[in-house]
Structures are given as structure tokens and as C-alpha cells.
Simulated scan of single mutants.
Amino acid sequence: MIIIDCEKMKYPNTGLFFFCDMLVRSLINENHGEFDLGFYVPGRYKGRWGESFYYKKKCLLDKIAVVSPAKCQLWHTTFQLAHYVPCNGKVLLTVHDLNFLYEKSDHKQQKYMAKLQKLVDRADRIVAISEFTKDDLIAHTDVGDKRIDVIYNGCNLYRGEICPPAIRPAGDFIFSVATVLPKKNFHVLPCLLQGNDLELIIAGNPSSYVDVILDEARRYGVEERVKIVGPIDESVKHWYFKYCKAFVFPSIAEGFGLPVIEAMAYGKPVFLSRHTCLPEIGGEQAYYFNTDFNRPLMQEEFRQGLDDYYRHEQERAEAIKAHALQFSWAHAARQYLDIYREMTE
């Protein structure tokens, strides 16, 4: 049996939730009965993917020690700072990012680095979700002679109903979605509304960083057109993707950036930072802001990018969609299954 750690699904509307959910669904589809699959889950998710699978529910005793069942050949830990890792058996570790190096104080960096190193030491093999993350991991931890594979996340092709928000934007709008934290760098975006009638919609779990974004909006006199709408349903998120003028994602700390690929799947122009993995994921089909986020230069980059896209909209949209579809959850699942096979032979 292979057990996939889905403990981080306790945080809905986050990248880790969607990573675990989409990976599990794709593993089930691509497995064709070869492996018995099991899932380590918060109690409320028991049975989420069908009653025929084994579910190990997280319990209070796991804080002392997690014991992998005797029938488990491999435990797949899906987060680089996981709290719950079995004390026995083989472990595959997926590393998403080392974002704490770019957003935490020195003291917290040391704390998280020690925890990451402990998990790297515990793992028998490692997967990074981008070449950038792999390079970061090698540069900052002692991986020894452990094999590190790169498996890109897939594109979340949404098949459900698309529903408009309760209050629709008044006109054209640009969109972004993520937990609203300083590392997402959203406060550089309000300047893009100067000299036009666009609205900026930011969706995601809020924090005190919202005040920084709104202060910047007031500085440019556009506060009435900056809407921070909080967490939203998938149906509403995809309405925003489908109808936005552009998707903007100036993050300075990413391991992959799933929303970027989701927006590109709709053929939308995406404007990204040049930091961390985003140029690797957006490739030549994305537009980029300058590395220093110089506001007048960003405004010009945004205007030129929109002009380029909408002068060749059909051609550009098709190329962007094709780029997004290179990132397949089915392909990612098959790569993970290959590793499961190699580690259990």
C-alpha cells in the first residue's frame, strides 16, 4: 500500500489543498489497480475519494509519533514542513518551495531550515515541483546523494458550473487570487489602475496585509476600484478567470504558482514577477514586471502587454492555452506512480 499524506487539506482554499486533492484524484485515475492507495487525512475527509480506499485519520496521538501501518510500503509526505511523518518505513518527500528564506526573520529561517533538513534526512527520495525549487533545495540543505526528481503540478481544468460573484465588477477588471500575505506582493498592483477604468479584484484568505494594499490604492487615488473579496468558491474563481481582462501575479515567493496556469488555461494574458519559479512556469507566453517593481515602469509594461495581447488576441490566446495544457495532472500522477514503483520494487 502507498499512503499519501493529505493532512494539509485542513486548510481549504489554499494551494496545498488543491495540490493534494488534484493529485489524489489523478493517482486514482492513472493507477489502474496496480497499487492499493491510502490517504492520511483530517477526519472530515474520510471517504472523500470513495469508500473503497484506506483512510488513516489524523489523531491526537500522532503528535507524539505517527506509525505507518505494517501493510504500507511507502508513505508520500506531500509538504516539506509536514508535522506528521511516520517513524517507520520508506518516505517520499515532495518539496514545494523554500519560501521562508524570502519572507521570514533570521530566527524563523533557522527554525524552518532545521525542520526541513530533518525531513530531508528522513526521506528516501525527494520530488521538487520546479527546477527552481530543486536548485533552492540543493543550495540550502544537505541532500547528500538522495535522488531529486522534478514533477510539475498539473493545470486544474475546471469542469463544474461557473457562477458570477454576488456583486459583479462594474466593468473590465484584472484579477489575482492567493492567500493575501506580504510574499504575494499585491500592494504593487494598484498603480496599474491609474489612467484607466479597470478594477482590481483580489480573492483569497485575508490578513493584516490588506491594509498595506489599500494604503497603496489610496496613494494612487484608486481605492474605490480595488476590491479584496476574501475566499471564494471554485465556481466564482473560474468566473473571474474567464472574464478578467488580465491575470496579475507579482509574487516574490513561489514554488510553482498554480493560479498562473489556471488563468492561462482560459487563454488570458498573465503578468508575473520575475522572481523565484514564475519565469519557469509562465515561459515565453507570459508578460513580466521589472524585478524592482518600479511603478511607472510597471504601468508601461502593463500597457504594452495588454496592447500586444489584444492586437493579436485569438493567436495569443491559443498559444497561451497550449502552454497551460502542457501541465497535466494525469502526467504528474504517472510520474509519481513511476517513482512509487521504483521505491517499492
Rank of each mutant, 00 (worst) to 15 (best):
I3T: 12
I3C: 09
E7F: 13
K8I: 08
M9V: 06
K10E: 14
N13A: 13
L16T: 12
F17P: 03
D21H: 14
L23C: 08
L23N: 09
R25A: 15
S26M: 07
N29T: 13
H32N: 14
G33D: 11
E34H: 13
D36R: 13
Y40D: 03
V41I: 12
R44M: 07
R44I: 10
E51T: 07
Y54T: 14
Y54F: 13
S68C: 11
P69L: 12
W75H: 01
F79Y: 15
H83D: 15
P86T: 09
G89H: 07
V91R: 09
L93M: 05
N99Y: 02
N99P: 01
L101D: 02
K104E: 14
K111P: 01
Y112N: 11
L116N: 06
K118N: 12
L119T: 02
V120W: 04
D121W: 07
D121N: 15
E131K: 12
K134S: 03
G144I: 11
K146L: 04
I148A: 01
G154A: 05
C155E: 12
Y158M: 06
E161F: 04
I167T: 14
D172H: 11
S176Q: 06
L181N: 04
P182F: 02
K184W: 02
N185G: 01
Q194N: 07
G195E: 09
N196T: 03
E199I: 10
L200M: 06
I202N: 03
A203S: 11
A203Y: 09
N205V: 14
I213W: 04
L214N: 11
D215A: 13
D215K: 15
E216D: 08
A217V: 05
E223S: 15
I228T: 01
V229S: 04
P231G: 03
W239Q: 04
Y240A: 08
K242S: 11
A246E: 04
F247M: 03
F249P: 02
S251C: 05
P259R: 12
I261R: 10
E262M: 07
A263C: 06
G267T: 06
K268D: 02
R274F: 00
T276N: 05
C277F: 02
P279E: 11
I281E: 09
G283Y: 10
A286H: 08
A286E: 11
D292V: 04
F293M: 10
M298K: 05
Q299H: 02
E300P: 00
Q304S: 09
R311T: 13
H312E: 14
H312M: 08
E313M: 13
R316L: 02
A317N: 05
A317K: 14
E318Q: 14
A322R: 15
L325P: 00
F327R: 08
F327M: 10
Y336W: 07
Y340F: 10
Y340M: 04
